[in-house]
């Protein structure tokens, strides 16, 4: 059972990773990031059931989701600011800082 969960979590993590690295649009990258966080949360939740240390795992999942939410707020505002500034929300449009 746990192998299946870990496979799903690994797959999700890898998909998120691929999105982060390969996709051009910022939102797609953001989604990839969230996907990786969710994969980690899934793994954590599963392990929490098995672990003997009580509720530590579950508390961790809750806190991770809270932190992910906070991150999302900040991330989306930044992406929107880029959009409003007239530049396409693409990774390539933000290349002035170089060298």
């Amino acid at each position: 059972m746990s192998a299946l969960i870990w496979a799903v979590s690994g797959l999700l993590f890898f998909l998120g990773l691929a999105a982060v690295v390969l996709r051009r649009q910022l939102l797609a990258v953001f989604l990839g990031m969230e996907l990786m966080v969710v994969a980690a949360a899934l793994a954590l939740g599963h392990e929490a059931t098995r672990a003997a240390a009580g509720a530590e795992g579950f508390v961790a999942v809750l806190l991770v989701l809270a932190v992910a939410a906070a991150e999302a707020v900040v991330g989306l505002t930044l992406v929107l600011r880029v959009h409003w500034s007239g530049r396409p929300a693409e990774a390539d449009s933000l290349r002035e800082l170089r060298g």
């Binding site: 979590s9 998120g16 953001f30 966080v37 672990a51 240390a53 991150e71 930044l78």
Partner: peptide
């Protein structure tokens, strides 16, 4: 703004890595 976006995405990816590492470590250490 450009710097902030770069910082956000790189930082977010790193945080995700940290999380995954934590999960894996949790599975081993209990």
């Amino acid at each position: 703004l450009e710097a902030a976006v770069k910082y956000f995405f790189a930082g977010g990816a790193a945080a995700a890595l940290f999380l995954m590492g934590m999960a894996v470590h949790f599975s081993a250490a209990g």
